[in-house]
C-alpha cells in the first residue's frame, strides 16, 4: 500500500511538473495566427469593398470569423474558395460571391481631369492630363473609388462582358 501511494504521488509530481512546463513553453499567443496568412492572400489594394477600412482589418475579421470569406469582390470566387478551405468552411452555405465589377469611363464625358487615375489603388486607369482616360480591365478591381472621385460622373461599374474566350459549358442539370 505504501509503495503504491508513493509511486502514484511520484508520478503525479513528475507528470504535473511536465504539464506545467508544457503549458509554459507550448503556449499559443492569443493573436490569431491566421490573420497574417489571410492578409497575404488578399489583393492588398485597400479598396474597401468588403466594408473594412483595408485589407489588414478585413483579414483580421475573416480570421476571427466576423466577416464572410466571400466578402472580397476583387478576390472573386478563387479567393473565397482558398479562404473557405483554410478556415474549413463549407462555401455552399454562404451563397455566391459578388460578381467582380469593372469601371467603365464614358468617352464622351471624360474631361481628362486625372483625378481618377491618381486615386486608383492598382494603377488601372491610364491617361494624361486633358486626355481621355481608359480603364485597363486586367488590373481593375472594381473598388468604385474612381467613381466617387470623378467630378463629371462619367465612370460607371459593369460586370465583365461574356465573350468566346471566357465562355464555358454550364453544369448539366443534376440527374
Amino acid at each position: 500500500m505504501l509503495i503504491a501511494t508513493l509511486v502514484l504521488t511520484l508520478m503525479g509530481l513528475v507528470l504535473g511538473t511536465l504539464l506545467a512546463l508544457a503549458a509554459r513553453y507550448m503556449a499559443v499567443e492569443d493573436d490569431n495566427p491566421m490573420t497574417g496568412e489571410i492578409e497575404d492572400l488578399l489583393p492588398g489594394s485597400q479598396c474597401g469593398q468588403c466594408g473594412f477600412p483595408g485589407c489588414g482589418p478585413a483579414a483580421e475579421a475573416i480570421a476571427n470569423r466576423e466577416a464572410d470569406v466571400t466578402c472580397c469582390p476583387p478576390g472573386g470566387r478563387a479567393l473565397a474558395e482558398t479562404l473557405a478551405k483554410m478556415m474549413d468552411i463549407d462555401l455552399s452555405t454562404l451563397g455566391d460571391a459578388a460578381e467582380p465589377q469593372l469601371a467603365v469611363i464614358d468617352e464622351t464625358l471624360c474631361t481628362g481631369c486625372t483625378r481618377c487615375f491618381k486615386i486608383c489603388p492598382t494603377d488601372a486607369i491610364v491617361g494624361a492630363s486633358k486626355q481621355m482616360h481608359v480603364v485597363v480591365n486586367e488590373a481593375c478591381t472594381g473598388c468604385e473609388q474612381c467613381m466617387e472621385a470623378c467630378p463629371e460622373d462619367c465612370i460607371s461599374m459593369t460586370t465583365e462582358e461574356m465573350d468566346l474566350t471566357r465562355w464555358h459549358w454550364h453544369k448539366p442539370e443534376a440527374a
Binding site: Q46, A78, P100, H168
Partner: peptide
C-alpha cells in the same frame, strides 16, 4: 459537359487568381 464545365471553372479560377496576383503587385 461535366468535364467541360469543370475545365472551364478551373480556368476561370486560374484567371481570377492571376488577376488578383497582378492587382496585388500593382497595389504594392
Amino acid at each position: 459537359q461535366y468535364f467541360e464545365y469543370a475545365k472551364g471553372e478551373i480556368r476561370d479560377r486560374r484567371v481570377g487568381e492571376q488577376k488578383m496576383l497582378r492587382t496585388k503587385e500593382l497595389a504594392d
